[in-house]
Design a protein around this nucleic acid. Structure first.
Lengths: 218, 218
DNA sequence: ATAGCTTTGTGAAGAATTTCACAAAGGCCC
DNA sequence: GGGCCTTTGTGAAATTCTTCACAAAGCTAT
């Protein structure tokens, strides 16, 4: 298949969210124009994005909401359960472990790890926090797909290395560092300091402020 | 000045982080190559990014670490204090309110708001949680620059509208919705579900997995 | 069944961003 | 000071992403 840009995937994910909204309201069809309006893009962009994967609409009518939603779920790989381990049970890690929105979308937290002896053994939303050293050994039984890294910057690379040994193929990194992973591993970094600095930049260079969304490279 | 791409700003922010690292290690100079290696880019990209703002290096030698760091801080608008209000004192909001990394970089939390009567009046890191309804009135005394939105999706637009009335010009949104703001306001959205779905997509389309970083459009 | 209105799907054009590649500059050593 | 090595700054080329614009389809009403 043709190469799919990261920005396209982000938008698909966004479209899916609106579709689910529409679905719950019982609407049957939606046009690329409506989808675009809610997503802050143009209808041409919506159609281009979708056209990468096939042709899902009906001319003159638009898209069937449930059908398109199902297609997007399939495209995004949401038809299965993704097993997630969270490494770092600090404020952010704990918040994520307890956030049920993930479970709803098929991301199931199967393990939480920390290095602080005071935290190890505590329970977070039904999951016992274990020592980071247990990750390697747990890999075989937990078979995690994705690791979420919420440890301090200094510990992040070690945490990822462990996660990779445990069989993880995707990493969502919240530590403010650029992590080294083999090219077969998908890595995304969310860096809140970077977002705030982006805002600061926009504010001091006020004139045609029109930034939108987060994302970028790390 | 020439238009600066968002991706450039993200990278500048990243470079600054490395520079601070180097600074603390006492290194005097750094080359675009070294900066690139740690940032996962190319040296040409680094030089291009910096060249938008001036010419800071010495040929044959590289960049003076403290000088370049100072320049980047000035460019990114980190020379002053940014006053931040957090709207939504749930898990994520509380975690952010207590995260001291922000204060270090000049982002000072001056107010925390929630709509839950059980939370109002409680103290978070020295700041009393107040009712969301107080935001409008507080604007004049708190003079916030930036609002961080950590309320549920349904409440997000209302929260932003309040924040704008309180005088905010930048918004960092954690709610999974596309917010409407006037074009003079800078908006960034961090959407964790979107990041996870991006990973899921990369994992099911495994072949040349080579995603990096978060960011994009919302 | 035809006319009229709407909306998709998509090549082609345009804009933005990244990479290339190299001349110009600076330091260092003999 | 001349040669040599390194690294910047930057036009030009290449690539990637977005927008344009329009023919092809489908529905509705008559």
């Amino acid at each position: 298949m043709k190469h799919v840009a990261e920005s396209t995937v982000r938008r698909l994910s966004l479209y899916l969210r609106f579709l689910e909204d529409f679905e719950s309201k019982g609407l049957a069809t939606i046009s690329s124009d409506e989808l675009a309006a809610r997503g802050g893009t143009t209808s041409a962009q919506v159609r281009k994005d979708l056209s990468l994967f096939g042709s899902f609409g009906k001319r003159g009518l638009g898209y069937s909401v449930p059908q398109l939603a199902a297609r997007l779920r399939a495209i995004l790989g949401l038809g299965r359960e993704w097993r997630v381990v969270i490494i770092g049970a600090g404020k952010i890690g704990s918040a994520l472990a307890q956030y049920h929105g993930f479970a709803q979308r098929g991301f199931r937290v199967v393990g939480v790890y920390d290095s602080d002896p005071a935290k190890i053994g505590q329970t977070l939303d039904g999951i016992r926090i274990r020592s980071v050293e247990a990750i390697d050994a747990d890999g075989a039984s937990l078979t995690p797909d994705i690791a979420v890294i919420t440890v301090p910057a200094e510990a992040a690379q070690r945490a990822v290395d462990r996660a990779l040994r445990a069989g993880v193929h995707g990493v969502l990194n919240f530590a403010p560092v650029h992590l080294q992973v083999p090219p077969t591993v998908a890595l995304k970094t969310v860096n809140m300091a970077m977002e705030l600095e982006g805002l600061a930049f926009a504010l001091v260079n006020r004139s045609d402020v029109a930034i939108e969304s987060a994302g970028g490279a790390d």
